[in-house]
């Protein structure tokens, strides 16, 4: 089966700098204009039938992409199976909900606090558990996700089952309002966040942390023999992933205005993990694509109502059977070598 990722990489490597810049710029323009696609006849097929298309772009699509990128660092890059990722999203969301309703802080001021709290919980969870391997880690993280949800469900400050309502919208950015009537602006904010995260991940990946994660994923014992302090790098991976989940949570709460514990169930962890696996573990573009599809398609086919999830599930099973490494898998080394040899 053809490897789209390698095809794309081939094309990209063949281009010179101006060509690449033009391409990225054009792509960004198209993506930023996506919220208006529903208004034109040639692109109206993108419209989601029973939900506001512009809202769908922010949630679930934008949120899923952010979370999937964060989880991909943990699962895809470092090979740590985290089944409780939703916990960090919840921590971010509740940090924003509580602080913006109970103090004078606004969303942007809460953002670093939410990220820090998510990271901190990532470290606290990671310190004792990242010594565990494989299945054990999966079980413990699954438990962590549930514990966070149950704590939220049972404390008074989080509003218990009712959750938190009347969460304020973020203050305007560059004179652009961020409220119910301006989903487009939310989309652009989320788009900027996604681009920042991608930029950050790419920087990490080509540097020492990326090498360390890669080594840990491929063979933990050998990584130790190379002198990689594996616990430290696993905790970094965990807390960076957590930070991204937390950031997504903060913006999520500020967008939807009401949050409740049932938005943060185990299902979300599984769905985000599916985005990563479906798109192609370890590859940023695959993950972005996977998250987009898994967030968008169920909204697009809402008209088939009850059978929707069944159809969706079947499609997932079929696709994963045809492409077990995901739609856009991580780069295939043999081809890479061929390319480098050609240019060498």
């Amino acid at each position: 089966m053809i490897n789209l990722r390698d095809k794309g990489a081939d094309l990209w490597e063949g281009w010179n700098r101006p060509k690449r810049i033009t391409f990225v710029f054009a792509l960004l323009v198209v993506i930023s204009l996506l919220p208006f696609a529903g208004n034109f006849s040639f692109s109206s097929f993108l419209n989601t039938p029973s939900a506001s298309y512009q809202d769908v772009l922010v949630y679930p699509i934008g949120m899923f992409i952010l979370m999937a990128l964060g989880l991909n660092i943990v699962v895809g890059k470092s090979g740590l199976l985290d089944l409780g990722y939703v916990a960090f999203f919840a921590i971010g969301a509740y940090t924003d909900a509580i602080l913006t309703t109970k103090t004078h802080l606004n969303t942007w001021q809460v953002m670093p606090i939410g990220i820090a709290l998510a990271m901190l919980s990532g470290v606290l969870l990671g310190l004792p558990t990242l010594r565990l391997r494989g299945d054990y880690l999966a079980i413990v993280t699954l438990g962590f996700g549930e514990i966070v949800r149950i704590v939220i469900l049972n404390s008074s400050i989080t509003g218990g089952t009712n959750g938190v309502a009347s969460i304020p919208n973020p203050p305007s950015v560059l004179g652009q309002k961020l409220d119910l009537n301006h989903s487009v602006n939310f989309f652009w904010i989320v788009l900027v966040m996604i681009l920042l995260v991608i930029w950050m991940i790419r920087r990490f990946t080509v540097r020492r942390p990326g090498r360390a994660w890669e080594a840990i994923r491929q063979d933990e014992d050998v990584a130790i023999l190379m002198g990689v302090p594996i616990l430290r790098y696993k905790i970094w991976s965990f807390s960076i992933g957590a930070a991204i989940g937390g950031a997504a949570g903060v913006i999520f709460a500020a967008k939807v205005l009401v949050i409740a514990p049932d938005m943060f169930t185990f299902n979300v962890s599984v769905l985000i993990l599916s985005c990563v696996v479906f798109g192609g573990m370890g590859n940023i573009w695959g993950v972005v694509f996977g998250a987009t599809m898994l967030a968008y398609v169920p909204q697009r086919i809402r008209f088939i109502t009850n059978a929707r999830e069944l159809v969706f599930g079947l499609v997932l099973i079929i696709v994963m059977n045809l492409r077990p490494d995901g739609i856009l898998p991580r780069k295939k080394r043999e081809k890479l070598s061929a390319r480098k040899e050609k240019s060498a």
Binding site: R208, R211, A215, Q218, D219, M226
Partner: peptide, 15 residues
């Protein structure tokens, strides 16, 4: 490391 190139493997030795 099976997924790293020969060169990358060698570089890891100097990590």
């Amino acid at each position: 490391f099976p997924g790293m190139t020969v060169l990358e493997n060698l570089e890891m030795g100097k990590y």
